[in-house]
Design a protein around this nucleic acid. Sequence first.
DNA 1: TTGGAATGTCAACAAGACTGACGTATTTTC
DNA 2: GAAAATACGTCAGTCTTGTTGACATTCCAA
Lengths: 169, 169
Amino acid sequence: MAEGQTPGGGSGQALLYLTDEQLRQGIEAMFFAYRGFTADPDRILEGLSYGRAHHRAIHFIHCAPGTTVNNLLAILGVTKQSLNRVLRTLIEDGLVTSHVGRSDKRERHLTLTEAGEALEQQLSDAQRARMRDAYRKAGPEAVAGFKTVLEAMMDDDMRRAYLALREGR
Amino acid sequence: MAEGQTPGGGSGQALLYLTDEQLRQGIEAMFFAYRGFTADPDRILEGLSYGRAHHRAIHFIHCAPGTTVNNLLAILGVTKQSLNRVLRTLIEDGLVTSHVGRSDKRERHLTLTEAGEALEQQLSDAQRARMRDAYRKAGPEAVAGFKTVLEAMMDDDMRRAYLALREGR
DNA sequence: TTGGAATGTCAACAAGACTGACGTATTTTC
DNA sequence: GAAAATACGTCAGTCTTGTTGACATTCCAA
């Protein structure tokens, strides 16, 4: 507890960006930015009877078509009961299809239907538009720094999942 | 819809960081990083009967002691009824005090008690520790870029609230 | 002084997370 | 071939945290 005000512990100058005050600002920036980050898709989903949970499922099924339920579970970090509620409505509404696996018939492979892809596009366009504006305002060097810090902030297994998704494309 | 793959529209090279794929990566990085960001405080609060909402209230009351309920409402972006439930438990448990305003008796001014400050320290230390590690790994230039992008990602009124908090200190 | 606006409280409800228990099909292991 | 493990679905119940609606108090201005 009571971490020092100058965490470097004597190296001075170069570590000014690690003061408690700087860190607190970063924490608040993260909080407010995340609100903006989710605001646009939330607005779109409001009208339909879907929520953020549906958005996340749709996003990752789009990224990894044919993924299994278990896979999705690991990425989203929720329980299967929780995911199942979401998936059931998406399948009922014809946005997602579930196919029994060929090699392993216990698995269900999830894919977006045409309607599902359309909604994904709509949500993704809105979120990317904000992201693009932010990136453009900030410039390429800032964006590189942004990603570096975010990556360092993840838990180890989340970073693995993140990097795996990048490679998969 | 169907935003182009190279959004610059001809400028080529310099705008490669604005491709849909780059933006998508940023979106996912944001998602995974936010999970890490909240993981440590969540773990601490798990044992106590508090959640993330309590953490947020405590954080901002700590930053602006004596703030009113309405003020807090604007920052947190929830309904007053929702905030009230959280505040009630915090007051009952002796972590927050609520004083009737002197000039305007409708207002309640909120402050952390000693116990409240202690919990704030504990939560904040945990969150800062992760932030500090991430910052240290990433280096000062990356951190500057990180903040620039986050700030550009906020809604206008959120950015105002964020900057106001920075100035207030 | 009276009526409207602002501040905050109480009650009821919904979304979405969680745990725990159970059932079924399939695969793997001994 | 029988037993254990895996993948998935479901039912039931709880918790946090958001919502709306109704209401009390206080302030201010017509």
